[in-house]
Design a protein around this nucleic acid. Structure first.
Lengths: 369, 369
DNA sequence: CTGTTAGCGCATTCAC
DNA sequence: GTGAATGCGCTAACAG
């Protein structure tokens, strides 16, 4: 059997074979109701037989809309993002959009490049989830009328929507949960102080403590960096403090995970010796040992709010001059990394500040060195 | 100050302002060397002043190449993938490509839709990382001359490249590592039997055991499903066996993590009571408690091989009729989830098959119920 | 070396 | 209700 050689199919070819004009083919495919059912049937027949798929590049060119939304994240490997990307894609599929995903990997050049790529592909809108962006880049986008949506850090201007996160709610719950468990010395491991979102979490912590008359000891406020390593370092700092905390709230889950990991190495049991609370509720949190109690900031909802905001912009006639402000709530999810505070005597006793060195540990160091 | 209203910039506008033809603008921007430096300078000046970015849609239309590579994964939230996506994007940026990421979420409809989206956007190639794909869909792609690259499961045909994974290497290392630690009863938790890659791992395990004269007990071969839940279930099955294993090799890291999590709940210590080895070496593995010994299958290298294969196809003149086969090696990374086998007496003693129920646990169940 | 012209594949006027 | 013609923004002939 001789296979027919591949010829790039186009609307013209369909038209020829269906014996109609290209305009009719276009109308049929796009569901314009004024097409004669007879002709439409002929067109669909040919389309299906030939497996014709319209060229979206061409469509975009003539229609002026690419049906692509940009999604800028700081790093896909940050466990906070995959969940968002997945939800965002689900919505994109649903609305017949494509998503152009780029990551900045904390590199200003890369961030600039991201924006450039978005513009060159003529995206219909951009969701920026990097917790910060240069004004000049925002200007680049806005100058070209590209609708934008930010989380937390967006400017209040036409064409730019914002999702404000209510950190206070969840963090207050976390602090009160700890207090209910008799914790009085509660530490906080912040994110990088350069991040507005990190600062907001810290402020929420401090306020929540004050609300219930708890003292926030300065030596119990540690600056982390939202990484696991940062969490590990934070635990070390906390160990060196004269009077140790019995509970600790972390600015994100990765920090909490790193901190728990280090605690394990030092023989500090969670939650018996130390209660740990995270923030974000990444999927991983529930699979930690023990499962992490954390403040949930729904990634699904975040994605949904962002997508809807963008969609709203492109669909509104007012040429994207509107601007919405939505708010994302946070709430505590209690799992097993928090428990009753140890009495201070017991606490001091049970915290053995020596590394557990096993044969296995030694072997590992040898084989990796 | 009155802002100049935005006018869609195009090559014609640049040409007018620089007092040259559109062809010259095009040549300049594309670095064609035969342009008079004087004119080029004038063009660049205008381009920079106006912040002109070429429209890639139009470029793609006329050039016939979109400079987009498709990347189909099964689920972005599977920790195995983000690392790959990141590496793939790094390469894309480097080579001036865009990536169209879609996930199939184990849904045939969605898989079909993925392929359709790829075709409609006229991608220059597709990397398929879903460990399986319908022949008819492959045919759809190949019929349109879209270069493809598969991992493990690709057909051997022109225009289709394959990355074969050498599972044997790493798994043999793992088995021998366990054997060196005096483990004789070693269990294996497989992936879904419908997955070729899972089957290959299991076969590699069995062969590795036989090579060193170790018996593989049928009751110690458990069918998992590459999820954490599956790992949890697997541990339960292993507990019910008359003579328990002292070591277990899992078909992927998620399984190992779930298994360890369940072991924790049952008071089974890793590695003192049970040595656990994973497969994949996802980033998370090193942050487990204890850090997971696992067989590494480099995600970075996988991404690189895939990208290069695609690039090779589009750059070769032979209209993508070539076909490469590359191999991805695997190797054991020893961390702390493996140790000396307990003597069988000790093993039975230390495995306490009762759930640890604490007040915290109760609280958690209450608050989530 | 530069400018003019003709499409790339499609949606959309405008006549009929 | 349908078709012929125009143009989206750009590159690649082709002349000059």
């Amino acid at each position: 059997m001789v296979e027919e050689f591949f010829r790039a199919m186009d609307i013209r070819e369909i038209a020829r074979r269906a014996k109609v004009s290209t305009a009719t083919v276009s109308r049929t495919i796009n569901g314009v109701p004024t097409v004669d059912p007879q002709l439409a049937k002929r067109v669909w027949k040919v389309v299906n037989e030939l497996g014709y798929y319209p060229n979206k590049q061409a469509r975009a060119l003539v229609s002026g809309r690419s049906r692509i939304f940009g999604l800028i994240v700081s790093e896909i490997t940050n466990p906070f993002f995959p969940e968002i990307v997945q939800s965002f894609e689900d919505l994109a599929v649903q609305h017949n959009y494509e998503i152009l995903l780029t990551s900045t990997v904390y590199d200003p050049k890369r961030m600039e490049l991201s924006v450039r790529r978005m513009i060159e592909r003529r995206v219909d809108g951009v969701a920026i989830l990097t917790f910060g962006m240069e004004d000049s880049l925002i200007e680049d986008l806005r100058f070209r009328n590209v609708p934008l949506v930010f989380v937390d850090v967006g400017p209040r201007m036409p064409g730019v929507s914002n999702i404000r996160v209510n950190y206070q709610e969840g963090i207050r719950e976390a602090v009160q949960h700890l207090a209910a468990f008799r914790h009085a010395r509660i530490a906080f491991v912040s994110g990088p102080v350069t991040l507005r979102s990190a600062l907001a979490r810290k402020a929420a912590f401090e306020q929540s403590m004050q609300e219930i008359g708890l003292n926030v000891a300065p030596e119990l406020i540690i600056e982390g960096d939202h990484t696991m390593k940062g969490g590990m370092r934070a635990l070390l700092e906390l160990l060196s403090v004269r009077q140790r905390p019995t509970g600790v709230l972390c600015s994100n889950d990765m920090t909490a995970i790193g901190l728990m990991r280090e605690a394990f190495d030092y023989g500090i049991r969670v939650p018996e010796d130390l209660s740990v609370v995270g923030f974000d509720d990444i999927r991983l949190a529930q699979f930690m040992i023990p499962p992490l109690t954390t403040v949930q900031m729904s990634q699904t909802e975040l994605a949904s709010l962002a997508f809807k905001a963008l969609l709203n912009h492109v669909e509104s006639d007012s040429s994207s001059l509107n601007h919405t402000e939505s708010v994302l709530h946070t709430t505590l999810v209690v799992r097993k990394s928090t428990g009753l505070a140890p009495s201070s005597v017991v606490a001091e006793k049970s915290i053995r500040s020596r590394r557990l060195v096993s044969k296995t540990a030694k072997l590992s160091e040898t084989s990796s060195g």
